[in-house]
C-alpha cells in the first residue's frame, strides 16, 4: 500500500513541479470547447441543446491527447524498468498511475465542466447528471487509455496512433454519459444510466490494468 501511494504521490508531485503539464489538458479542453460556438453559431438554444455532447466529446479528446505522456517519460528515463522489477506487481503500479492521471485530468475536467456548461447555455437540470456521468466515466477513460499509451511505447509514431486505438473503446462511455443527461431532461430516472456507467468502469478496471501491464512488459523487453 505504501508503494502504491508513493507512485500516486510522486506522479502528482511531478505534475505540479513540471508546472502546467496538467493545466495543458485543461487548456486544451477549454480552448476546444470555445471553438464550437464559432463552428455552429452562437444561438443559445442550439448551443444549449448540444452543450452536453460538446463537453463530453471534448473531454474524450482532451483525455486522448494526455495519454501519450502517461508512460513515455517513465519509459525514457528508466523508471519503468524499476517499476516492473519492484516487489509491487506491475498491475498495481499501472493502477496507481491511472489514478494519478485521473486526478490530474479526468477530475479536473469534471470540475471544470459546469463552468463550460454556463458558457454553452446548458439546461439547468443537466448539470447534475453531466457531472455525475463525468465522475463515473472519466476514470474508465484513464484506465482504457492506459492500454493505448502502453501499446505505442515502442512504436515509431505515438500521438495520433493512440487516438485511433482508444477512441473507439471510449464509445460506450460517451453513449451512456450523454444518455444520463438526456434521460434527466425528458424526466426519466437517472440511476440506470449511472449504474451502467459504473458497470463500464468495473469492466475497464481489469481490462485496463491487465492490458496496460501486458503492453508495458512487452515494451520493456
Amino acid at each position: 500500500m505504501n508503494a502504491f501511494l508513493a507512485i500516486i504521490g510522486r506522479d502528482l508531485r511531478l505534475a505540479t513541479r513540471r508546472g502546467g503539464e496538467a493545466a495543458l489538458t485543461l487548456g486544451f479542453f477549454v480552448v476546444a470547447i470555445t471553438l464550437f460556438p464559432f463552428g455552429v453559431g452562437p444561438e443559445p438554444e442550439l448551443l444549449g441543446r448540444i452543450a452536453a455532447g460538446i463537453i463530453w466529446v471534448t473531454a474524450l479528446l482532451a483525455a486522448t491527447v494526455s495519454f501519450d505522456r502517461l508512460f513515455r517519460a517513465d519509459m525514457e528515463d528508466g523508471t519503468l524498468e524499476l517499476l516492473a522489477l519492484a516487489p509491487l506487481p506491475l498491475e498495481l503500479a499501472v493502477l496507481a498511475k491511472a489514478i494519478a492521471h485521473w486526478l490530474l485530468t479526468g477530475l479536473a475536467v469534471t470540475l471544470l465542466a459546469p463552468v463550460m456548461g454556463l458558457m454553452l447555455n446548458l439546461p439547468e437540470a443537466a448539470y447534475g447528471p453531466l457531472v455525475a456521468g463525468l465522475l463515473l466515466g472519466t476514470p474508465a477513460l484513464s484506465l482504457l487509455g492506459g492500454i493505448g499509451a502502453a501499446l505505442v511505447l515502442g512504436a515509431r509514431r505515438g500521438g495520433a496512433l493512440v487516438g485511433l486505438l482508444v477512441l473507439p473503446l471510449f464509445l460506450p462511455v460517451l453513449i451512456f454519459g450523454i444518455s444520463a443527461v438526456e434521460a434527466t431532461l425528458i424526466g426519466l430516472p437517472l440511476a440506470p444510466h449511472l449504474l451502467i456507467l459504473g458497470a463500464l468502469l468495473a469492466v475497464a478496471l481489469p481490462v485496463g490494468v491487465f492490458g496496460s501491464a501486458a503492453a508495458l512488459r512487452l515494451a520493456l523487453e
Binding site: 492500454i147 512504436a155 473507439p168 460506450p172 469492466v203 481490462v207 512487452l218
Partner: peptide, 17 residues
Amino acid sequence: RAAAILACVGAINLPII
C-alpha cells in the same frame, strides 16, 4: 504482440460497444 494485445482488448470491448 502489441497488435495481439489490442485485438484481445478489442474483442472484450466489441460486444459492449
